[in-house]
Amino acid sequence: MEKNGYINSSNGARTGTYTVKAGLAQMLKGGVIMDVVTPEQARIAEEAGACAVMALERVPADIRKEGGVSRMSDPQVIRAIKEAVTIPVMAKARIGHFVEAQILEALGIDYIDESEVLTPADENNHIDKHNFTVPFVCGCRNLGEALRRIAEGAAMIRTKGEAGTGNVVEAVRHARSVLGEVRRISTMSADERYAYARDIQAPVELVNETANLGRLPVVNFAAGGVATPADAALMMQLGLDGVFVGSGIFKSGAPAKRAHAIVQAVTHFNDAEVLAEVSEDLGEPMVGINLDTLSEPEKMAHRGW
């Protein structure tokens, strides 16, 4: 098992390389990834134009409501969702739970979300994601967290936001933090970047690479609280590459219509006339939660390090 993929000697095909892992995320750009809990919801998402679905047992809003330990979904649920659609299927593993990740890889999942929405399994270590053929997406609140995850092998990054609240404020905070820091390091001199890398606890090589590119070295999506087409377009205009929508679709009044509208909003994120048109008559959005009513332990974004 080597870190840059597996070679099939008979025809020279190399699977699981970083290019291949990051490449799928590049194909998802400008798209919407939707949380689904049944094959029927997965079909609705596909028909609405989702570029991928996240297969779950419970959406974050219900995880929040029901409490208890939240784990990887039953493989039966994941298999049924995989059978129902042709678009990529993602699934969540607990932070640090590399055996859940091994199981998801064996199921042929297209992307694993090592997610703070589930109860963490390890309070010090994230999964060593280089050890897998399947690619990983991880959440972050700031540039240091993003680059640590990339160093561990994440091939895609998303904001953490605050899942299951229908409140976009944390996703905005995290996006502004990451993108603002990227702009800041782009103007730093080489010697300043060493100190900066130390301060944010990230490898200096990745700090330099990010500074030179003027963006993260991997695709960067918004997640955690997106509930309306306007929310989705806001995240795109801030500079993110695409959007995860969790509870926002199937906890709303007219899921198919809202899903469709959010897909259109992500394509036409810069066209206010289109945004006005697709935002019309979507029924009730999910009931949101104001974050100051949540106690600190109730916030999921603090999970992961």
Partner: peptide, 15 residues
């Protein structure tokens, strides 16, 4: 054939 090569596990690079 749309997903001829299978899922992401089977994605690859080659010459």
């Amino acid at each position: 054939n749309r997903n001829f090569f299978g899922s992401q596990r089977d994605s690859f690079e080659a010459e």
